[in-house]
Design a protein around this nucleic acid. Structure first.
Lengths: 340, 340
DNA sequence: TATTTTTGATGTAACGATACATATACAGGT
DNA sequence: ACCTGTATATGTATCGTTACATCAAAAATA
């Protein structure tokens, strides 16, 4: 990183060809793998060219190649959410898998701002990303804008719990996850289950509420509207949720995520309650620390590995013009530990 | 994401020019900002062209632009480490900051494999990334290979605790962090401090050991070699470290990271020890869950925000051909909580 | 009015790679 | 000898932009 003057000495294909004593076309085909359609290039010259290229340290100019072929070999990834952290691991797995098949990963994190999301999509458009993987996150009243942004983009894979119909997606079935939680809590004796609702206007949260209701209905338990404990996502107020749950004499609290579960447990313990003896608590996400809490956390694992596999499967099939299902739904898995 | 047939209808600059009734050159200059060197374009035509462009939904072809200008507007990021997770947040902040200034972020995670690192560097080379931000991670015996890979790359910013001299870097001073830990522990009465050493061959771990020794020396405490408790990074064996610390009658354990600290605390509690009364434990990284453990974790915050700021500062100054310091060192901050 | 200067627009040649069409050589078949 | 075919190499146009040179007209100076 010198203070002035950029790196020089980019080797071009012409120079490689010159050194090998062949034409540029020959060099191109040789390095692409020899097997042209109409014409081939002999083994002898292939190795001659390969040698020249490696001696010169030739790296093909991606921009030129892309301009000619129209394919960028770039996969765009958008993390659009107010809780981006959850997706880091997921996208990290996807990136590593795609890298193995020769694709580059360009990432943009929007943190919930729709303006920024638009900027990323524009940028990806400009760069002719071969595909776009995006988390779909819809804040209240944004539906129109969102549809507008994605309209005309036909190479997008939606990830998470997207509301879009007729679009290829990998659905992380949070509704099913919370049903499993309710099943478990009810079958072990709890009927008053408080649901920690972080912001009910977001689509993912709505799905969670639906799952909660469906779970209770399954066991013929009347859903007490009070037990939906709402607040905004500020980190401090999980404690308030804990206190409210006690007021309501809830037997269990299903927290919005593991971090909030940890905070809720802490507050309950501070108030002299034992978890799970006095009140049970469940999390969501199964983060790395969840097994290490005291009590260790019963939680829902969204199976990032499986989600990543599905996403890569769909993207690769799309890129290779092969058939693939419109929608893969990954059912989460309940992880039973001490807290509930 | 249709099963067959790619997206059509890419609008080219020529079409915009045609619609606005001007030449391609005029359109180009207008959209670039009007202020050409030798010639200018009038306000009237600028707006005419702008309108045409937006009506057609024109997006400049990044590949063509890059081919002509030589600048890709891409920043490459490499997460090269066996513990990549630590860097997610850091790179996420950097990405968001750089996005604001119009740069794209292309990311490759290597998980410690030097082959993969090489592949990413090649790829970035091909794509003419304007700069590369990389964590430097040197496994035993890899020094030669690493130097080879980075030789000739002059647009790299190293992040973390890199061993490279004469290369621009943002140093996260882990050594200083552990000194602060030792200071705190000693000044509150502990002299037998066990250090949780995850793999002593890695450069970052070596720096931590150095800091530990320096901290003890400062207080005239003879370092007992036994108190360096070594093992590999497998998640299960933090418990072994805890037991060994008890055997050695350590008064405190400085864990390699917060996750291990959590595991160590758990094991100590399981064995009937109270933290911090019987034995103190400190972490490293100040993760989001650390304040929620019981006891809440005293740990070292590496100040990702400050590191990201420094990285962005250096990269931007480099890109704009401005002067910048060769090395910014970010001192971590000790966060005092209950566990020590 | 003639001449310079300013302002605005256009034309053209790249950037580096690939796809296609074209050339050359030397087989074998008639 | 002549055509046909196969195998290998080359030439050339092109992708969409931008940089530079050129050009035409209007404005300012002489």
């Amino acid at each position: 990183m010198p203070k002035e003057g950029r790196r020089e000495g980019k080797i071009t294909l012409a120079e490689v060809a010159a050194r090998a004593g062949v034409s540029v076309s020959a060099a191109s085909k040789a390095l692409l793998g020899g097997g042209g359609k109409t014409t081939r290039v002999s083994q002898a010259t292939i190795s001659k060219i390969r040698r020249a290229a490696s001696e010169l340290g030739y790296r093909p100019n991606a921009a030129a190649r892309q301009l000619k072929t129209g394919r960028s070999n770039i996969i765009g990834a958008i993390i659009h959410s107010t809780a981006p952290r959850i997706y880091y691991e997921l996208f990290s797995i996807i990136q590593q898998k795609l890298a193995k098949t020769g694709y580059c990963f360009m990432v943009g994190q929007s943190d919930g701002s729709i303006r920024l999301l638009g900027r990323y999509l524009d940028e990806f458009h400009s760069r002719h990303t071969d595909a776009i993987i995006t988390t779909f996150f819809e804040a209240p009243g944004e539906n129109q804008q969102l549809r507008g942004l994605y309209a005309g983009l036909d190479n997008v894979l939606y990830l998470g719990s997207p509301d879009f119909e007729n679009a290829p997606r990998v659905d992380m079935d949070t509704g099913d996850g919370i049903i499993q939680v309710v099943d478990h809590l009810v079958s072990s004796g709890a009927s008053r289950i408080a649901l920690d609702v972080v912001d009910k206007f977001y689509s993912t949260v709505r799905k969670r509420i639906q799952g909660y209701r469906a779970g209770l209905k399954k066991h013929n338990i009347k859903a007490d509207a009070d037990l939906l404990i709402e607040n905004d996502g500020a980190p401090g107020n999980a404690a308030a949720t804990a206190r409210r749950a006690l007021e309501l004499e809830a037997q269990a609290v299903a927290a919005g995520n593991d971090l909030r579960a940890a905070a809720i447990i802490r507050e309950l313990q501070r108030l002299g309650r034992r978890v799970p003896e006095d009140i049970r608590v469940t999390g969501f996400d199964n983060m790395d620390f969840s097994a290490l809490l005291k009590p260790s956390l019963t939680t829902v694992d969204q199976r990032n590995g499986a989600v990543a596999d599905a996403a890569v499967f769909m993207v690769r099939h799309y890129l290779d013009n092969m058939k693939f299902p419109e929608n893969i739904s990954i059912k989460p898995r309940l992880v039973l530990r001490e807290s509930a």
